[in-house]
Nucleic acid binder design. Structure first.
Lengths: 149, 149
DNA sequence: CTACAAGTTCAAGTGAACTTGAAGTCAAGC
DNA sequence: GCTTGACTTCAAGTTCACTTGAACTTGTAG
């Protein structure tokens, strides 16, 4: 197994479909060299980047947000453990916020829905806006979202 | 304010757009009577149902799943607090599972990504398949999903 | 050298959850 | 009785994150 991986290699090793990898490349989340014939050759460290993408999605970030984060990595040298940790630090708070929301929802579920306060504006389980359960275009101020404009 | 609400009333009171309410009705999540002229008139208790829908979405259920849950409510009488609580009981475990996953992700973020184990199959932060961060068609067995067929 | 698996691009399709627009009808206030 | 805002349906559009298909080219094993 050489130092450069074909798209098929990367797909097998990461569990991410080749079509998705091409899509990520198109969106600038990963990069590849090209062989003389035009085929992609990925440096091995792309696997780490892909792992990060998968993690981040699972946490609830959009590809666009992930791209922004990944852009913060140094372009000229291979990212160190410290680089990665700096990125992920931001997210810890995001995860915490989402956990807190889920805990609020859990108590709201047993308390509010059963008791009836849920039926109106009194029930403000606050804290909106993370993307995992992001607001559609419709505002839901039951959950603390701002009122629709 | 009478006992029957127009779609505009419901939209204002729930914060859910009228177009979304029509969509929910089409999908069988809520129901309405019609006036002679054909306009919708919603019984007041639909607000509770809508609150439930919004909650459930926030937790991560799809509309289809929510429809299944709501179908368990007694059709012939107004649901009691006990009815609602029976529904939401199922979800508590779901929320707990999602919280657990987020906690795993949080530690994975600081430990695995920094250290390098994330780069390959050794890193199995298990437990797949809730819908908030649901798997796309691409499998990601890094996160414990089954391998693609 | 040839077969054929694996790669390429580009356009179009998918599904979830809605929104938007067009074209028309209803209902409430004056 | 008329105006005006709220409502109706239906079809088509939107965003996200990909996948699928067609038509074609590369690269490797025998």
């Amino acid at each position: 197994m050489s130092d450069l991986l074909t798209i098929g290699d990367v797909a097998r090793r990461s569990g991410v479909a080749a079509s998705a990898l091409r899509f990520y490349e198109e969106r600038g989340l990963i990069a590849s060299d090209r062989e003389s014939g035009g085929q992609r050759r990925f440096p091995r460290h792309v696997l780490r980047r892909i792992a990060f993408i998968v993690f981040a999605q699972r946490i609830g970030l959009s590809l666009e947000e992930i791209a922004v984060e990944l852009a913060k990595l140094p372009a000229n040298r291979a990212p160190t453990g410290r680089d990665w940790q700096r990125l992920s630090a931001t997210w810890t708070s995001r995860i915490d916020a989402r956990i807190a929301e889920l805990e609020r929802l859990r108590s709201g579920l047993t308390q509010c829905i059963g008791c009836g306060c849920l039926s109106l504006e009194r029930c403000h389980l606050s804290n909106p806006g993370d993307r995992v359960a992001r607001q559609g275009a419709g505002a839901r101020y039951w959950l603390g979202d701002r009122r629709p404009r």
